[in-house]
């Protein structure tokens, strides 16, 4: 039985526009809110694709490239830091499930 790390799991996901050097971000995160006032920084552990990470100084960083469009951060963030949209099919990123 295979137990995979999150990086290995995301390696199994097919994304749209993988060849594009610069895709347009579909989620915007105001990390000033995360780092200045958020009491829990919950996106750094509830996000199933580990798109929100903490650096050594405890600051929140966000990247959209690994996002699998699940929506978790849109509900879990109760601080108003997350602006969530669907990715553009042509110039955005996002998933392309082969099994689903």
């Amino acid at each position: 039985m295979e137990l995979l790390s999150i990086a290995e799991r995301l390696g199994k996901v097919a994304y749209r526009n993988q060849g594009r050097s610069e895709a347009r971000a579909h989620i915007e995160v105001d990390t000033d809110i995360c780092n200045a006032t958020c009491p829990h920084k919950c996106t750094t552990y509830v996000c199933p694709a580990n798109c929100y990470t903490l650096d050594e100084a405890g600051k929140v960083h966000f990247q959209f490239e690994d996002c699998i469009e699940c929506g978790t951060c849109m509900y879990a963030c109760d601080q108003g830091a997350v602006t969530w949209r669907y990715p553009d099919p042509e110039v955005g990123r996002g998933v392309n499930w082969s099994l689903g």
């Binding site: 039985m1 199994k12 998933v95 099994l99």
Partner: peptide, 26 residues
């Protein structure tokens, strides 16, 4: 999810399997 997969009763059903896709959704 890894803890769940490692439970003795669950692990027995997954033996020899290969993860094909990982997914998540609200």
């Amino acid at each position: 999810l890894n803890d769940f997969k490692s439970h003795p009763a669950v692990a027995d059903t997954l033996r020899g399997g290969e993860v094909l896709e990982y997914s998540a959704h609200v």
